[in-house]
Design a protein around this nucleic acid. Structure first.
Length: 111
DNA sequence: CCTCTGACCGACA
DNA sequence: ATGTCGGCCAGAG
């Protein structure tokens, strides 16, 4: 099952999988944790393939503003916000309420 | 094989 | 404070 553990994407998938329920993180946080803060864009892009994986909750990953920028990729509906709210994360207008409160930093938690 | 773009972030003018 | 640009990896045309 481990295919490209040396790849950038695989690392992103692993971190996303470690995100606890009812918690959220940002692309930049993951990228930074991987040592590629400037590759935040690719983290989101990596999710494009991860969304096919059920083991990777891409809906728990938002931008650094706590905005559900990737919501458009979740079927075009508010499915992303619905899933977050279902986990206990309040979302208002594509923006997570008290984002800082639900923010899960891989560098802090996984450090 | 070469080029471009992609769910971002941070720096600079 | 607002707008623009660069940057990193990998896949599609």
């Amino acid at each position: 099952m481990k295919k490209d553990h040396s790849g950038f994407f695989e690392k992103v998938y692993e971190v996303c999988r470690q995100i606890p329920e009812g918690r959220v993180t940002s692309y930049g946080a993951i990228a930074r944790y991987l040592g590629a803060a400037r590759s935040a864009r690719m983290v989101g892009w990596a999710m494009n393939g991860s969304k096919n994986l059920e083991d990777v909750p891409a809906h728990r990953v938002v931008n650094r503003n706590g905005m559900l920028t990737g919501k458009s990729h979740f079927g075009g509906s508010d499915a992303m916000a619905q899933m977050l709210e279902a986990e206990g994360v309040p979302v208002n207008d594509l923006q997570i309420v008290n984002f800082q409160q639900y923010f899960w930093d891989p560098m802090k938690e996984l450090s």
